[in-house]
Design a protein around this nucleic acid. Structure first.
Length: 495
RNA sequence: CGGGGCGUAGUGCAACGGUAGCACGAGUCCUUUGGGAGGAUUUAAUCCCGGUUCAAAUCCGGGCGCCCCGACCA
């Protein structure tokens, strides 16, 4: 009984059959997030927020290179704005929070009641197309004002029926980009540039392979002509949409009168795009790489690259070890330009190992009396636990090499997992059996019909995640109805 | 919004309608210290309102909250 309770509290073992429990265990263990008092909202703790800051920094740089400027628009949007684009309102109406009053007064029973009813209710942005394009309509007059490339970092709020930490919280942080262009082609090219940046980030920095492609019509953003997306496979085989870029056509331009005069003096509606990634990426990161011990951070995402743990407490030399380890950490930090943490807390060294493993720090550096004598230190990899002895003189080079290697191996491990769980299927019987029995994605032919798509979803819970950009032309028959199909698409159960 | 489950120290669990207990944590002291250490000692709890009863953590009604599973979704 003692052992059991010990295990329950200390172990954070993933259980494939109970993924969300495992997920929250990892989050708690790593001290990343917490529930808030508000339903479905989440408090992101400092260690978790550092991951968001990383994402923020990397994307700011990418966007800058594309000529995108940051700006900020109001949290509150007039309700009437939402109604202007028919499909958009249909998509978001059922999940917007509405502000109807502007003050509180006593209800005479010791409580408060809303007062000061607004004549025009405001909604809390679920996304900002409407209020941004209202501004665009005033900012854009001539073809010389185009392209207009804007991004905003913001919180948005969607009253979803069901929430999951990081993957779907009521309030979440994201960046939303909004652009206006002269031609359809230019807008389409921009939308695909963005999805490539997203893919690049998730694969290069988060070490997670994704499939980039088009959404089917039913999975498109409300109000878009085309949605491009990247889809990642989590460790339980489920799909997670990690980023989207929408080709909005002239739908919003017409609704909000985003128009310009062209070179010949003729009026035209602008062609627009919108695109975003959110704190969901942190969820993807946690779910993609974590193991029985907790988080595993790819080096490029880690706010602490390495942690120096002094060992040998209680020995005569420990004071020297502390002094040496501290200097070592400082020197390593300045030589590599990486964040190297020195952990001199009064805890047993074993406890510190577990502490930093839970938090996913890529490399642990152990320094004790024996190392002091040998002028070397011990590097321990978080991803596979491998230990290596490193001479003091090589410390900086070896750390950089090790981090690069961890980054690559994490990607390769995830890529192998995805490859092993991406299955071609050619008959409806196989499809149903495979989706039930085996985790992962299915590559199957699809006729392009919304009816087949809907019925497949109804019977199996699987949806079309995307029609990959790099799909090979291949004559085949729709896995559901048997009609002609020219290529395979990706099906999966999704978060 | 439908279906299911659960509310007891900070956390995880126990207690037939009859003295609320265990483990972990936290505090203090001693011994330890190259992978979550040991001993001593201290600390702290029945979600809210009502009912049944000599007696309620336990039974009943209502409320509130949380978790899981669906529908919806980044």
């Amino acid at each position: 009984m003692d052992d059991d309770s010990k295990n329950i509290q200390k172990k954070i073992t993933p259980r494939a059959e109970d993924y969300s429990k495992w997920y929250s265990d990892v989050i708690d263990a790593a001290d990343i997030a917490d529930n808030s008092a508000v339903r479905g909202c989440m408090i992101i703790k400092p260690y978790g927020y550092a991951l968001w800051e990383k994402i923020h920094t990397i994307f700011d740089e990418k966007f800058k290179k594309l000529g995108v400027s940051n700006a900020y628009f109001p949290l509150l949007i007039p309700q009437s704005f939402l109604a202007k684009e028919a499909k958009h309102v249909e998509g978001f109406a059922k999940e917007v929070a509405v502000v109807t009053h502007h003050r509180l007064e006593s209800d005479g029973k010791g409580g408060l009641k809303p007062a000061g009813e607004l004549s025009d209710p405001l909604i809390i942005r679920p996304t900002s197309e409407t209020i941004i394009y209202d501004a665009f309509s005033r900012w854009i007059c001539s073809y010389r004002d185009l392209p207009l490339l804007i991004n905003q970092w913001a919180n948005v709020l969607r009253w979803e029926m069901r929430t999951r930490p990081f993957l779907r919280t009521t309030e979440f942080l994201w960046q939303e980009g909004h652009t206006a262009h002269r031609t359809s082609q230019e807008a389409a090219e921009f939308a695909s540039k963005i999805i490539n940046e997203y893919k690049d980030f998730v694969e290069q920095d988060m070490a997670l392979p994704v499939i980039a492609g088009y959404k089917s019509e039913s999975e498109r953003f409300a109000g878009a002509d085309q949605t491009l997306c990247i889809e990642a496979m989590m460790q339980d085989g489920k799909a997670l949409q990690a980023g989207t870029s929408h080709m909005l056509g002239q739908n919003f331009a017409k609704a909000f009168n985003v128009s310009f005069t062209d070179e010949k003096g003729k009026p035209n509606f602008a062609w627009q795009t919108s695109w975003g990634v959110s704190t969901r990426l942190i969820g993807a990161l946690i779910m993609a790489h974590s193991d029985d011990k907790g988080l595993v951070l790819p080096p490029k995402m880690a706010s602490i690259s390495a942690v120096v743990v002094p060992v040998g407490q209680g020995t005569a030399e420990y004071d020297n070890v502390l002094k040496y380890a501290k200097e070592f950490a400082q020197r390593l930090e300045s030589e590599t330009g990486l964040a190297v943490k020195f952990d001199d807390r009064e805890l047993r060294s074993g406890e510190k190992y577990f502490y930093w493993e839970k938090r996913g720090v890529p490399v642990r550096i152990e320094i004790g009396p024996r190392d002091l004598a040998k002028k070397s230190v011990v590097y321990v990899r978080r991803d596979n636990g491998q230990k290596s002895f490193v001479a003091e003189a090589d410390a900086a080079i070896k750390l950089k090499e090790l981090l690069a290697d961890i980054q690559t191996s994490l990607f390769e491990k995830a890529a192998k997992f995805r490859k092993d769980n991406l299955r071609p299927v050619d008959s409806w019987g196989d499809f149903k059996q495979t989706i039930d029995a085996k985790p992962g994605f299915i590559k199957a032919h699809w006729c392009g019909g919304a009816e087949c798509e809907a019925k497949i979803k109804e019977e199996t819970m699987a949806t079309i995640r995307c029609i990959p950009f790099d799909v090979e032309a291949e004559a085949g028959k729709c896995v559901f109805c048997g009609k002609k199909s020219n290529n395979r698409v990706i099906f999966a159960k999704a978060y």
